[in-house]
Design a protein around this nucleic acid. Structure first.
Lengths: 210, 210, 210, 210
DNA sequence: GATGAATGAGTCTTCATTCAT
DNA sequence: TATGAATGAAGACTCATTCAT
């Protein structure tokens, strides 16, 4: 039994958690570039030097934040749609999870939306796979719905990307003065209306005369 | 005839244009924070000191970029919908202009989407008004369509904000490796499908017998 | 008759006067280093470029201020002591002129006291001669008084330098929060007390008994 | 025993000392404004970044220099007059300490005299208290002497300020070409002559005839 | 002569990263 | 491992001086 190694590993993961939570707070308030490693270390309850024991450089901190956030959403979506068969319901739930996540992890979400572009090429690649996984999940839901004749015949990949993006919009909402709607109103709007973009309307066929 | 003043003014606006174009290039490639004033000056064909003759600080450069971009879109939308009455057509054209703009001024658009949050409170306020104007334009189109019974009865303000945001999504598209769709495909998708989120489906009323 | 040359010369001297007055205002408020040539030009009612028609560089502006100021004091002292014979009276008047000058040209005085050290070696030499002339004037008054048995036998050169410096103290007075005495009180103090440092006291010889 | 805290504190004060000594050298040679932080850091034997670990900004460096200098003089004066009762002797010693200090810390003194005006309002306030303390010390000596009938009845506050200033004159002496007297000669002059400005001359009272 | 736009060298200051303890 | 002092490269901004008009 690799008790020693386990102990080491558990400390590492505890530290990563600390860093994630500290960094989310700081990034959300000041953005990636304006945040200093000192502030992140403080928020994480670590010394600046210690930070660098667990992280190659500042970019890796951003990567931790984004990855950790993605994994959380993905896992929650998985739970939310398991056991559900109806495509429309599955789609709605998947979207709803993203919106719910935005409320709970507003800061991480904000960071994810805005700071991805600050990553290096390598960082983007590493992240791209995660986002791709999430989008493919949405896509599979859409494809099922199309096959079942419940959704419009559309490019499911693009639709998935757009839906994914729409929920990120929701994440950063409120930063600009003109953005005054409540998050709940936006949720409702998306669930009630945007969904029509994909659902095939049941056009009431004119009942035959006679 | 204030010839002198005119000359001075025309030079100022020429310089602002130079700065706009230089800054757009640099911001698009490196983002606001990573761009240096030296790089912007170089791209604008000005000396660093000259830059500061026309701009209070780095933030004002960003503001110029965003404002100029907004004004361009606004003016193009205005032209595109003038003389058109049909709400659906107006809406489609408004969206199409935004998408077209994204192709032409890809860099400015990218900057607008990503760097707004880097503005100071004052800068955000100044910008917020511009964005608000644009959103209100979309909203009025939606309201007309709702009144005419062509659009679903929905919260037109939120719808306008979402549409506005959706087109900005399009702007930054392509930055991440997984984003492989062509811009034309996305345009088509939005025009063909997303529009259903607002259009009231024409349930074919049974034509009256006789 | 060199009319043309005269005209040119009169404009030059008019400009120097403008520069002197503008620079005094600006230097007094901000000090030599913190003053910009733009501010000086503005205060002088000239364009920045025009300033450089009359002045080699910024240092020469300081030189103009200091020289002009010195010449003014010197000329006023000359007038004040002409026709007076009593050494004590002459000394008092010389000092008084310096103090009076300080009230009238407070700004120039402040500048003179503080910014001389900012001059280049050449500038210092040029100025040093002027100050030296003023000190020698005081010294000659002191020497006369010593010869006449009215002043203590002291190193008249050092005494002159110290008196000269004492009045410059007066110039900058009030800049620091603790300096609360009125200028008039200080004048009175110097005239009434400091003068005893040089005057030979008439020790009342005990009148012989009988 | 707070050994750790002590160690930290001792390093801080060691660094402040280094900065004080480096800055004094540089300021004395070039003045506050012309000195660069790089030069100061070099003179202090620190990296530029390290400088800013111990100092908020350039102004604080000046403040350190002036404060440290003041404290040194104050402490030396205290030692010099302790145990002495005769007012004239106390006054002479106080002055002498200032003069002696000028020889030993010529550079610091020069800086103190010239650069105080470059301080911000806050800096001036902070410093003003220190100078005030020193002046009040001189004043108390003067007041004692007046009460004892040894000094002329004069405004002791103004006298203290003037004496304080007179010794600062001595500090910067030698900068201008015309200033050729030796420091020792000036010391002698002040001790022998300037003191008469305050001392009440002993008019030999006729000894009562029995 | 007068002007003020243009220039770029020069400065302060910040902050990611290293490393001795 | 943990720490935080030390480092210096990098960047925003200023301003004396020049020069085309």
């Amino acid at each position: 039994m690799a008790k020693r190694a386990d102990f080491v590993e558990s400390r590492r993961s505890k530290r990563r958690k600390q860093i994630f939570e500290g960094a989310v707070k700081v990034f959300a308030k000041k953005g990636y570039h304006s945040a200093t490693t000192q502030e992140i270390a403080d928020a994480a309850g670590l010394a600046k030097g210690t930070l660098y024991e667990y992280v190659r450089d500042k970019e890796e901190i951003l990567l931790i934040v984004v990855e950790e956030g993605m994994l959380m959403v993905k896992s929650e979506i998985g739970k939310a749609i398991s056991g559900i068969d109806d495509p429309e319901e599955r789609m709605k739930r998947a979207i709803f999870v993203q919106l719910k996540f935005a409320k709970k992890y507003r800061n991480a979400a904000k960071v994810m939306q805005h700071e991805i572009r600050n990553l290096s090429v390598d960082g983007k690649k590493r992240l791209s796979e995660l986002m791709n996984g999430q989008i493919e999940l949405l896509r599979s839901i859409l494809d099922d719905g199309i096959k079942a004749g419940r959704f419009r015949k559309l490019d499911s990949r693009i639709a998935a990307e757009l839906f994914h993006h729409t929920s990120t919009f929701y994440f950063g909402y409120g930063d600009l003065p003109y953005q005054k709607a409540s998050l709940d109103d936006i949720t409702k709007f998306i669930m009630d209306n945007l969904i029509h973009a994909i659902i095939k309307e049941k056009t009431k066929e004119p009942t035959p005369v006679l």
